[in-house]
Design a protein around this nucleic acid. Structure first.
Length: 577
DNA sequence: TATACCGCGTT
DNA sequence: GACGTACGCGGTATAG
């Protein structure tokens, strides 16, 4: 199999608008060369045309560091990179999932003991006082660019045997296949209804103004509302309210939502503060996020980071579309995610995927049985902890059971459970919560064994792992510090569950992507939110897509129990969620 | 200007 | 004494 290692030098802010300055290639025996492009875009395009056959050759494996970026830049020039992909950033992530940085230059120093030239070493100040490679002598740029390609290729050679040694082959193949899928999703972007968004913004601004007036009745403008320390001093010194929380690092009592909730009724300002916080969060975080529409495409493009979440999950940034609210105001925000004429959105959610994974991995009889016979697990847990018949579980009580179910997957304590429940509006003492936890493990004996076993295995092996072999080293399990060790135990429990669920999503994404390509369908995958996928489909493909999506998601892996998928279709994310 | 901390949205 | 996983990102405060 032919392999090609390459790296782009670019300038500009995003893949849709940036320009390619040149491309460095590296081949065996270690030899790198650089193709410098012209300032003239027409010439650049002419050069790229000559390279197109290489990039689009299915039989050539492409090696790169953060290939997704380079692929999307090439895509904006009309070149679709094909063939198997190998990403050295992904390789380092698989071996060191907890590392915060996987940059090429850092890895080069760390693994190859080579100090690369930095961008600042070679870049020059432009007239706009920005550092750029434009105008730098071609010999210098060549040197710099070729180092990147060369080091990438050497890193590939360095990591390759380690992937086999740590038995990461399966997950490595999966994550590399996912690179193209994510590149496409980022490139596609999602359509936002600007008018709808503006309406919400106006509405929220009114609410902020109202809350601000109510607050300033008391503060008389002496306090910066968005400053926790100032609010803390005002509440606990000026008004002499009783601090409910702990002092933070900066010596001030906490004024978090949690604390404020407990003070509602003590003073009118509390409710106003909560209103202000809620509305200003919506305006400054979410509405602002949705305004980041790319002028060139008219759509909103997020970035998916494949190498930050140590469990194997993806993360989304610039903007983060994985934390758009889902309740109340979230419904309005999600109504702004629209389709072009003639298209619909399909949302597909795995139902209870983490609990199903837990049932499978633990082989707990009661859990398996529940999922095989369509018993609702949250209701089952609820009936046990309140000692009431399954049929008599109310919606409110079921919410408690649900929290207990999730809490236990994270290794939550009775204290934590009590806090969480009170945040959700139902108060239970720590004693009651201790009872809930005991009841839970009495009901699901297999989960107790499973949990102990996971911690034991992670401690002896030194790492936690998912069903398909994704690893997370947990050296903290050997720590002398109790709280570090306890945190390690929670990770040892949670990582296989959250990570396996993440693997399943990724497998489904790759299968769906491959089928879309193979069958020449026009539908596009747009978003992933941990257990949910969102697609934009031409109306003519609605029916075939509904079947295809469900089939590939349900069959992503074979567990002891079926995977279930909720599908919804509509003209906005609100309707498709 | 860069970094730390608090706070808060999702799963 | 602490007490829930995994994140991104807004604001203020503080260090340089």
């Amino acid at each position: 199999m032919k392999k090609l290692c390459f790296d782009l030098e670019t300038t500009g802010l995003d893949v849709h608008t940036c320009r390619i300055l040149g491309i460095a290639f590296c081949c065996m025996p270690l030899k790198a060369f650089y193709v410098s492009f012209s300032e003239d875009e027409q010439k650049t395009k002419k050069y790229l045309e000559r390279l197109r056959p290489i990039f689009e050759d299915d039989s050539i494996t492409k090696i790169g560091h953060n290939l997704k970026f380079d692929m999307n830049v090439l895509r904006s020039y009309g070149i679709k990179v094909k063939g198997p992909l190998i990403d050295t950033m992904v390789m380092d992530y698989l071996i060191h999932p907890d590392d915060k940085k996987h940059g090429l230059k850092k890895l080069s120093l760390q693994h190859l003991n080579y100090q690369q030239l930095t961008f600042n070493d070679v870049a020059m100040n432009s007239n706009r006082n920005e550092k750029t490679l434009e105008g730098v002598h071609s010999k210098i740029v060549t040197n710099y660019a070729c180092e990147d390609a060369d080091q990438t290729f050497q890193l590939y050679n360095h990591f390759n045997p380690l992937i086999g040694k740590y038995k990461l082959d399966t997950v490595y193949k999966l994550d590399c296949q996912l690179v193209s899928v994510l590149a496409d999703m980022e490139y596609n972007g999602v359509l936002i209804d600007k008018k709808e968004l503006k309406k919400i913004e106006k509405d929220v601004e009114l609410k902020i103004g109202d809350a601000k007036l109510r607050i300033e009745q008391f503060t008389k403008g002496t306090v910066l509302i968005s400053s926790p320390p100032q609010i803390s001093m005002f509440l606990f010194e000026e008004l002499a309210l009783t601090p409910m929380g702990e002092r933070g690092e900066n010596g001030h009592y906490s004024v978090s939502q949690n604390v404020l909730h407990k003070l509602v009724g003590e003073h009118q300002i509390i409710g106003a503060l909560l209103d202000y916080r809620g509305s200003s969060k919506v305006k400054t975080t979410f509405i602002k996020a949705l305004k980041n529409i790319n002028p060139k495409t008219g759509r909103l493009h997020t970035s998916y980071n494949q190498t930050v979440a140590a469990t194997g999950r993806l993360s989304s940034s610039k903007p983060n579309l994985q934390n758009i609210p889902s309740q109340t105001i979230g419904k309005q925000l999600r109504a702004c995610f629209k389709t072009p004429k003639g298209y619909s959105l399909i949302g597909a959610d795995y139902s209870n995927i983490e609990l199903r994974v837990t049932a499978h991995l633990s082989q707990d009889k009661k859990m398996l049985n529940a999922y095989r016979t369509d018993v609702d697990l949250h209701t089952l847990t609820t009936s046990k902890i309140f000692n009431i018949p399954y049929e008599e579980v109310t919606k409110e009580k079921r919410g408690v059971g649900k929290t207990v179910n999730f809490g236990l997957l994270y290794g939550m304590s009775a204290f934590g459970l009590s806090e969480k429940l009170s945040r959700e509006g139902t108060g239970y003492t720590i004693e009651e919560c201790t009872q809930f936890i005991n009841d839970f493990f009495e009901l699901y004996e297999g989960v107790k064994k499973f949990s102990d076993d996971l911690i034991y295995r992670a401690t002896t092996k030194g790492y936690a792992e998912t069903m398909i072999g994704r690893r997370r080293p947990l050296p903290e399990l050997q720590s002398n510090d109790t709280s570090e060790r306890e945190a390690g135990k929670r990770k040892a429990l949670n990582t296989p569950i959250q990570g396996t669920a993440a693997d399943i999503l990724k497998i489904a994404m790759v299968s769906i992507y491959n089928r879309l390509k193979k069958e020449g369908l026009k539908s596009k995958m747009l978003l992933q939110v941990h257990d949910e996928l969102l697609f934009e489909v031409p109306d003519g493909e609605k029916n075939i897509m509904k079947k295809l999506i469900r089939l590939e998601m349900v069959n992503a892996v074979h567990l002891s129990i079926p995977l279930e998928v909720d599908l919804k279709i509509g003209k906005s994310w609100k309707e498709a969620h």
